[in-house]
Every structure is written in structure tokens, then in C-alpha cells.
Design a protein around this nucleic acid. Structure first.
Lengths: 195, 195
DNA sequence: CCTAAAATATACCGATTGGTATTTTAACAT
DNA sequence: ATGTTAAAATACCAATCGGTATATTTTAGG
């Protein structure tokens, strides 16, 4: 890893939580230099513009979240338990212990969908990948007879994502973890009902 | 209504969709003057600062949405049908025909929760009111024997809000109304299962 | 119709925005 | 150790930011 690559990573690591909290328009170059301790010249020596930093920051935030989920999923045996890993994972970045500022998928989707086509494209891809991953898991569960054959994999995937992201919005806004527990209890019942 | 009141309303009407789409930091005073055709002097003659415009714009967007919901709810007889009005209402501002930019509750919650305490306070209040309204509806349904007595009204309220808001995020981002239908079909089944 | 007050426009302010050209410093291979 | 290249800092840019003081226009009451 060259010096430039190290610096690039350093900038992304330090600014990723800021973009996640303040959004694209709300994050200034001053925020970026303050968080890194670097000067504007150094930032622009490693990135063409603010957009490139924001896009890299989203990739970083997304990878951070999805790698945690993948790791937790691989620890689970049954399909149902795999579908329920979000219950424990997401709690961590509602209280800010992981991915400061909440879920980057939700934040960036709302931030970018009407304002930043490039960023929107990245989130769109992330959501569709997420949906397909859950859907395939459901298909596997149906093949294994763990889940009923009349389940619609895509519908289940979308419903889970909606409950998780909606739940994060509510819990983060209200700063009430009890709300998260109640919503996730509903999700549990929903998944239990699949087979 | 005085001239100033008219102008105030006019400014709010014209800028509300902009704040809903671009967020607080993303909406500039230039956006505001461009949307209204007024000058900066006129804006600041009617509002103390940008914050006041943003707060008034949120109130406007919120009232716009909630009055539509209230109207639709009053047309429904059963509790279950009342709980399902979101299915038809929210479709309208996913495609932009109402409240351009999507749901103001969701947008403002994500936009403001880490950045704008005053705005956050308003959304927080709106979400708690919404939750209480649905919970009371469920209590009524239990009293009427339409819903089972073992239902947790607060949990049901939170679950419905999460599914609706999560569903809006997904459908708006992907611009896919079929996704909305699938998620709302899950909501329908959920509400049907309440009694 | 005239006048006082209210409302809007004009012209300006310092600070900050994203971005760049240039200089200085640090890294690294020979 | 030195020369070369890469990386970071400095100093600057025009444009835009939110906001204000003042001038002009509009409104409304007598």
C-alpha cells in the first residue's frame, strides 16, 4: 500500500461518519479537513472533488455494515435465524456504537434520491443486492422445506428491509431502544410465520 | 388575512417541496427566492431566518400529509380499514403527485436527527402523535371486539409506521410501485391477523 | 386623495463554499 | 548521500452562502 493509498483510506475512514450524519450537502470541505487534520491541497491531491470523497465514504459505510451482517449470518444455521440477524446487528448503530449516524443505506437513500444521481445509483444497487440476497435465502429455505412453498421470496425480502429501515428511523429519531425491540418482535413473528 | 400573512403562506407553499426534496442544508436562500420570485429582503421581512422558513415548511408538509390521511380515515368504517388507509394515500406521494419529494416525516427525520435539534423536535413530536393515534385506534378495535384483546397497541402502531416508512424509502428510491404493492400486501396480511 | 405604515426591492456585508496553482516537504530508489 | 518523484501545505480564486441596512414601492385608513 503506497502512501497515497493509505491517505486515501484515512480520509475515507475519518469522513465516512460525517457524511453519514450530515449528508452530502451538509458536509463541507472544512468538515473534511477538520476531521482528518489535513489541508485542502492534500484532500484534492487524493480525490478529484467532494463527490469522489462522498462516494468512497458511502462505499466504506456500506461495506462496514454489510460485512458485519455477513459475519453474523454465517454464524447462524437455520434460514429463519439468518433472516433475523438484523435484530441484533442494527441495534449497534442505532445507539451509534457502529456506523455513527445510523444506517447508511437509509440515510443516503433519503439524502440522495432527489439530489445526487451518482450517489443514488450506489444506494439503489445496494438495496437491490440486499433484496436479492434475502430472496435467495428464502428460496433456499423453501427448497429445504424449512419455509412454506407458497411464500413470495421477493415480497418477504422487501418486507424485512422495510421493517428494519423503518424501525431504524423510528428508534434513532426517538432514541428509544424499546421501540426497536417492539418492532423487531413483530419481525420475529413475521419470520416465524413463514414456515 | 393581511398582505404579510398571504406572503408568508405563499413563501411556505412554494418552498415546502424544495425543503422536502433537498433537505435543510441543501436548500439555499437562492432556491427560496427563485421558487417564490421574491427578493431576499422580502423573505427576511417575513421570516427571521432560514430556520423559520424550514420549520414552517415542515409544518406545512406535515399538515398536508396528515390531513389527507385523516380525511381518508374518516371515510372508513372498520378499524382495520382505517389502519390500511396508508396503502392508498402514500402511493400518491411516492410518484410525486402529492408532497413532492416523498414523506416529509421520513425525510426530515433522516435530515435533521443529527444536525438540527429544532427540526428534529418537530418530527419527533409528529412520529409520537402518529404512533399514539394508531395505538388508540387499536385500543378502540379491541374494545369493539373487532381486534383480539392480546394485541399490543403500541407495538402495532410502531410496526405499521415502520413498514409504511420503510416501504416509502424502498419504493421511492427504486421508483418501483410494484415493490410498494408487495410491502403493502404484507401490511394487509399483518392487519388482517390482528383479529 | 393623501398620508402613515407596512411590505418589498436594492445594494451591500463578511464569511464560507468548492476548487486550483504553486511552493514546500517527505519518501524512495540508486 | 543525492536526485527524483510523489505528496502535502500554502496561498489564493471566483462564486455563493446567510443575513442586513437602507431605499423604494404598496397597501390601507381617514
Amino acid at each position: 500500500m503506497t502512501k497515497a493509498e493509505k491517505t486515501r483510506n484515512f480520509i475515507v475512514e475519518k469522513t465516512a461518519p460525517i457524511f453519514n450524519m450530515k449528508g452530502y450537502a451538509g458536509t463541507s470541505l472544512n468538515d473534511i479537513t477538520a476531521a482528518t487534520g489535513l489541508t485542502k491541497g492534500s484532500i484534492y491531491g487524493n480525490f478529484a472533488n467532494k463527490d469522489e470523497v462522498a462516494l468512497a465514504a458511502f462505499d466504506y459505510n456500506l461495506k462496514n455494515v454489510s460485512s458485519r451482517i455477513d459475519a453474523e449470518m454465517s454464524r447462524q444455521d437455520s434460514i429463519k435465524d439468518k433472516l433475523l440477524v438484523y435484530i441484533n446487528i442494527y441495534q449497534k448503530f442505532i445507539d451509534g456504537s457502529a456506523s455513527e449516524g445510523g444506517c447508511p443505506v437509509l440515510n443516503t437513500a433519503i439524502d440522495a434520491d432527489d439530489t445526487h444521481p451518482e450517489l443514488r445509483g450506489k444506494v439503489l444497487k445496494a438495496v437491490l443486492n440486499w433484496k436479492n440476497k434475502i430472496a435467495k435465502l428464502v428460496e433456499l429455505g423453501i427448497a429445504n422445506k424449512e419455509l412454506n412453498a407458497d411464500n413470495n421470496p421477493e415480497q418477504i425480502a422487501l418486507t424485512i428491509i422495510a421493517m428494519v429501515e423503518g424501525g431504524i428511523m423510528i428508534s434513532k429519531l426517538t432514541a428509544n431502544t424499546e421501540y426497536w425491540s417492539l418492532i423487531m418482535d413483530s419481525l420475529k413473528k413475521y419470520v416465524d410465520g413463514l414456515g
